[in-house]
Amino acid sequence: MSEVYIAILIIWVFLFVYAIAGSIDFGAGFWAMFYQTSKETQASQIANRYLSPSWEVTNVFLVLLVIALVGFFPGAAFYLGTLMILPVSLVLILLAIRSAFMVYSFTVKKYTRTLTVISGLTGLLIPALMVSILPVSIGGFIASSGERHFILFNEVLTSPAVYTHIGFGLATELFLSALLLSDYAREAGNEEVYGIYRKNAIVLGPVTLLFAVSALLTLIPEAPWMVETMMDIWYLFALSLAAAVIGYSTLWWKSDKTNLGRPRIGVLLIILQFGLASFGYGLSHMPYILYPDLTVYEAFTDPVMFRWLLYGYGGGLAILIPAFIVFWRLFMKDKRYLQINQEEK
């Protein structure tokens, strides 16, 4: 494998991890808001139990993605930075409001409701906005005059692909987080909350699939150049569909608990599905970062720097993996943390 391909593979892995972790994070924020007024259930508390220790770590993955892009593909940082300044700035502003208001809402009990609504809603918009950047990178929306390139916002706003992508972003966020929270609730031994998130996942699964397919279909007329590779690697998409269907069916598998379903296997299969589909999408996108102006080869970093970055990631991961294991044990496994006292309700 050439160096360029190793680098783009690493970027893809980071993008994939952040897409999952970010979706779950923002989605959990939304569910915490959605259930906060309902007296009968602890669904909101379970979501916050997940969010409190994890949102910072999730945010670092976003920074990791940006920094990795600058390091491995400085040319892409140049191009994307210039082009995407408006949408990305908007994401940044929403992100700041979301994080700050979430922390405020944990702190100021008197206004918790309002503050949670603000952080829940801003969080909901972020993945949708991020995903809507994808179709812009496939061409047709960028014009240039001389050296300057800019996005044709009018074309973007009238393109169906953008809206199907936004819908896809929203649906994925809500589906993934509902599925994960159902698993989290089961881990906490809270079958009642498990039932609630299971139901949400059941409703949202097909919606997500529908949006995924329509996003793909609206994309094709905008990006005929991607279709050929997509046809070549049809098996990846087929496998992904299979993983989705089996993953969805786990919600009805038999378990030794009161409710049906094996959410842990479901989460793993859906992540697999997501990985296969986004890998297929990424492959079809090659070798372009921005069609037709910028390829991965042109954007690639200096080869010496590339090697240094690889050593850096190797060393960093060696330190971090143990830290993540401790983290997982303390917050995702430890019953003392997961269970919610009655008085907290």
Binding site: P53, V60, I67, V70, G71, P74, W308, L309, F324, F331
Partner: peptide
């Protein structure tokens, strides 16, 4: 940043690991 990426990306990259360390243990 185009020059940064080619010449001085390493400290930025290691910084990410410092952020992870801080975030993980802060939560703990």
């Amino acid at each position: 940043m185009e020059i940064v990426g080619k010449v001085i990306a390493v400290p930025f990259q290691i910084e990410i690991f410092a952020f992870f360390l801080e975030a993980v243990f802060m939560s703990i």
